[in-house]
Design a protein around this nucleic acid. Structure first.
Lengths: 147, 147
DNA sequence: CTACATGCAAACCGTTTGCACCCTA
DNA sequence: TAGGGTGCAAACGGTTTGCATGTAG
């Protein structure tokens, strides 16, 4: 008897059945408030004693991506995809190179720039991704100590 | 007797031997002026009748990445890494969703924004990645025709 | 009751690695 | 000629898929 957070509706509206797996995975993603790898989600589920097969996690994430409830990204330029709950559609990331923490940034500095670029290039620009990299305050300290 | 484009020097300076493979791969990357997947490079080499093993391509790209002559990125959020010749250090991309063409953008609209964000977040920001997505002029036409 | 969802195991595919041979410096 | 570079084939790891079974609507 989990509290209805509203996404069951959205699932149904999109023609997806509202199953235990889907609700559990959405819960994890929303709670974490961070992009997560499929396996991280899998582990987080296990920690709550929810047993869902890894391939089901992948399939679920794919379904949720298809109905725009989840977005798949590759932030670190490695071979692991990350998945995040698609709350607001538009967001940017500030990533700590040290501890890998990911901050979400809501305000977007690129409003007028897209227009400019459209004129220059004749592209019809639909969106963009912006990732910023650096060291968070804690990791700046650690870094200093190690040197 | 290939013309010396100057990168042989840089190889040596970095302690890497100047081999046929490394020169050929750098040539391809520079010529293409686009981020390329390892296999694309492999194919491009083959088309010039240069036979280099795929794993050598990967190893070469890794070596070149280590000395900052090449950068590895994931633009399309898929499972293929792309590699590009690291000409200027700082650049952004405008990617056509239709034909997958990638334009490189030199000027960066994020100068002051990073400072702002540093103050807000206490991060020490080292850099960022900006990818813009849309349809190029040709693909806008195609799209219209297909609808 | 039926179509969609899931578990399981095997396949897949881009990438990496161990080892023997090759070639640059 | 020594030590890094390369080819080859096998391993690796994240992700996908085929098939039989389970379950939401």
């Amino acid at each position: 008897m989990s509290k209805n957070t509203g996404y069951e509706e959205k699932l149904k509206k999109s023609g997806l059945k509202s199953t235990k797996s889907r609700k559990a995975i959405l819960d994890i993603l929303i709670k974490s408030n961070q992009p997560m790898a499929a396996e991280q989600i899998f582990i987080a589920l296990k920690e709550e004693n929810i047993d869902i097969n890894l391939s089901t996690v992948y399939r679920t994430l794919e379904s949720l991506e298809n109905i725009d409830m989840v977005t798949k990204i590759n932030i670190m330029d490695d071979d692991r995809m990350l998945f995040e709950y698609n709350m607001l559609g538009h967001r940017h990331y500030l990533i700590c190179i040290g501890c890998k923490k990911i901050l979400t940034i809501q305000n977007c500095p690129l409003g007028s720039y897209e227009k400019e670029l459209e004129n220059e290039t004749n592209f019809a620009i639909l969106g963009h991704k912006l990732y910023l990299y650096g060291y968070c305050s804690e990791c700046q300290i650690t870094q200093t100590n190690n040197k």
